[in-house]
Design a protein around this nucleic acid. Sequence first.
DNA 1: GACAGAATCAAACAAAAGTTTTAATCATAC
DNA 2: GTATGATTAAAACTTTTGTTTGATTCTGTC
Lengths: 227, 227
Amino acid sequence: MTDTKDSILNSAERLFAERGYEATSLRAVTSEAGVNLAAVNYHFRSKDQLLKALFTRGMQRLNRERTALLDAYEAECGGKPVPPEKLVHALIGPMLDASRDRSRGREIFGMLLGRMYASPKGPLDDILVSDIEAFSERFKSAIRRALPGTSLEELYWRSFFAIGATAHTLISSRLIGIISNGLCDADDREAVLERLIRFIVAGLQAPERQGAKGKKAGPTGKKWRGK
Amino acid sequence: MTDTKDSILNSAERLFAERGYEATSLRAVTSEAGVNLAAVNYHFRSKDQLLKALFTRGMQRLNRERTALLDAYEAECGGKPVPPEKLVHALIGPMLDASRDRSRGREIFGMLLGRMYASPKGPLDDILVSDIEAFSERFKSAIRRALPGTSLEELYWRSFFAIGATAHTLISSRLIGIISNGLCDADDREAVLERLIRFIVAGLQAPERQGAKGKKAGPTGKKWRGK
DNA sequence: GACAGAATCAAACAAAAGTTTTAATCATAC
DNA sequence: GTATGATTAAAACTTTTGTTTGATTCTGTC
């Protein structure tokens, strides 16, 4: 019944992720899905609504997996705070979905998600923000317990940076092989996830600034001053 | 003489950065620039070539500033290795360009750059990679000296993550104000840069993995295992 | 088996976009 | 001043795109 509907969703997800939303025509989507062109406007109302539907589906799945992971880790730790490594894994693991299943469903949505972050402000912002907040509250309390010494404001920023590093990895990791002259392999997703987690955990645990708010001076004027 | 040419470049840079490349029409560009529509195809060959020209200009400017910073820092440090804080500042400072001048020229290009990273593979990859490599060699030797204990492969990855966090900050920092309920202020660019540098430096200095390559197990199966 | 609604299909529509064309204008050197 | 080339201007062209329409087929029900 909803066979074509799902086909459209899957094809659209893949194509939007690979080529971008604007650059993908509905004809490309329906062609790949093997359905009629008009099916998109019949089952969804428009191309925009298709993207929204796509996004809500992926986000709910993503947050469900995140929450499940966090629940499991908290249960595992009893009453103790969950260590940062596991928190970070619950946050970004489902985005990369390293070697979970071969369908690569989550990974594709991760790419799409990363692209959406980098997209101009649009009607998607509402979904994006509301779905972020859905898991944000759950995550906030856990990370505050894990890193009690850091201010909430700083934790927000650092989680934001963490998402950024993850999104970038999902979207443009094809570049690192070229840049590194083949030294780095982006296809070993499990290893990449491990590196990323290590990087982010260290960033989360960085010492918070505590000095005054005085200006800093560098070699040519207004620059960063090392510790 | 090249008045219209520069007008087009500037308007295109701003609009591409704000709305994205595909979503911006040449009519919007020429309209904002106050020039005739055909001027784009006259001075540049096509919309694609306009983007390329735009990109090369910005990248050269960016790498020039990065190199200048790095030179200054190295001179300042004599023969000693430049501390990571300053290396990171040389790498990402010119992208954020916190409070340098009011023209916000670099910041706009930073947004565009971030968007390009998140764009599908295309003809721009060549420019992107070659311009990255231009500064990459210079940066590589400096960071190897600053962090002699870390493998080159890991340094590549971590620099990659650093660029990701920066690009994300440039592009979607508008979201953090909403997510944090107004607690985080993305407009205080100097403070943001400082937080970002602190985060990245800690990530760069994270302990490198040294254990065996055995699989890890978590609560529900194949998951991350904390230290 | 006929009916009603849902779903699919082929075709067409209308708007938008990149590009091209041709004429007009400007600048400059002779 | 005029001739030549560079630049700008207005309009049209062609293709692509999202969307709609009306007919047709499928599905389940009485």
